Amino acid sequence: MGIEFNHLYVTLDPDTLESIARSEFISQEFCTISRDTVKTETESWTGTYLRGKHSYIELFPPGGAEGLREGFSGLGFNSQQAGDMDIVRKKIRSLSETQEILSDLQVRETEAGQVPWFHYLSVNPAERGAFASWLMEFHPDYLAYKNIELTREGCFDRAAYLKTLETSETSLFDDISEIHLELTVSEQEELAFLLQGFGYESSGGGDGTTYHSDRFLIRVYQTVSPRYRIRRVVCAIADRPHPEKTFTFGKNARLNLGRSLAIWEFG
């Protein structure tokens, strides 16, 4: 079974979001950036997308999707092969028979009509809660519609998927390797069940808990009433000359660009 981190979203105040969207450094050096509206058969949302070669960051203004308020955030993962979602579901059921598991099919509106997009699974889903985490398994019809080929091993290819969205090959942003969260007790419990279903290991230390797979790490700090759920995002960047500098965007976003990593801080 192979589960990968796919993308995250953060809801920012409008001034901070516009500052990022207008930045020449972001659009010309850091990544491909676009503002898109996505429609499904049941809902729609409008976000600003910072696309790397293997993952992306989705930024919303309050109300960019129904129910979103400043600081609301989420993490999306994807399965590599068909059937992995069923394995995750069974694993979560073996951990607890009382956890509510929601799974359904998301259908996307396209110029060719409605196309099955991906199956998704989440644990104890709330009605557009302050924090969300879910697993996606992309539907073969959508991969065919976008002409996305699987790898030789028959696995979903994140880079091939993002290439269909015209991701720049020369931008700095490559992938996301680490995320720091501030969550309530119940939010952390629900995320922990999902990550255990993926096969993540966990360890405690200091005032937080670390969950990790071979190439991805999540650090969770418990807070009674966090303002922003996603506080830090560590990105791997391309090995090419670039400025080592801190960029500030509005009141709630900062990008610390180092030699081999770029670290976003929110809130």
Rank of each mutant, 00 (worst) to 15 (best):
E4L: 06
L135Q: 01
T223V: 04
F138R: 13
H7N: 00
R128T: 06
F72R: 02
Q99F: 11
T170C: 09
G129M: 00
T184K: 12
I237Y: 09
I3V: 13
R215K: 13
G47P: 02
E70I: 03
I33T: 11
V10C: 14
V88N: 06
H180M: 12
F173T: 14
F118W: 13
A144I: 09
T11Y: 06
F249C: 06
P61E: 15
N147R: 10
W264M: 11
N252I: 05
R215Q: 12
V88R: 08
A130H: 10
N124F: 03
K53N: 11
F5Q: 11
Y142A: 02
F173L: 14
V220N: 04
F30Y: 12
E182L: 00
L143N: 14
T11I: 06
A238K: 08
C235N: 15
T42F: 13
F25H: 11
S203L: 14
L194V: 01
L257C: 10
E41F: 00
I20M: 07
R219F: 02
Q188G: 07
D239E: 13
S73G: 06
N6D: 15
D86W: 04
T16M: 12
C31D: 13
S168T: 12
I218D: 01
G197N: 08
P140R: 08
T11N: 09
H7M: 02
P241G: 10
V234E: 12
R108C: 01
Y161H: 14
Y228E: 03
Y161P: 08
T223Y: 02
L172A: 04
T164D: 10
R215S: 08
M1V: 04
A65M: 10
L261H: 12
F77T: 01
R89N: 05
E149V: 12
K245R: 15
L17G: 00
L8M: 12
L261K: 10
L195D: 02
T209W: 00
H119V: 07
A238N: 09
E189W: 05
D13W: 03
F138P: 08
F77K: 00
F216S: 06
Y221P: 03
A132P: 05
Y120N: 12
S27G: 15
D15Q: 13
R128I: 06
A130E: 05
E4C: 03
R22A: 01
F60A: 06
G154F: 07
K245W: 10
L95I: 12
W45T: 06
G47M: 03
R51M: 11
S27P: 11
F131R: 00
S213E: 02
R229Q: 00
G208E: 14
N124E: 11
Q28M: 09
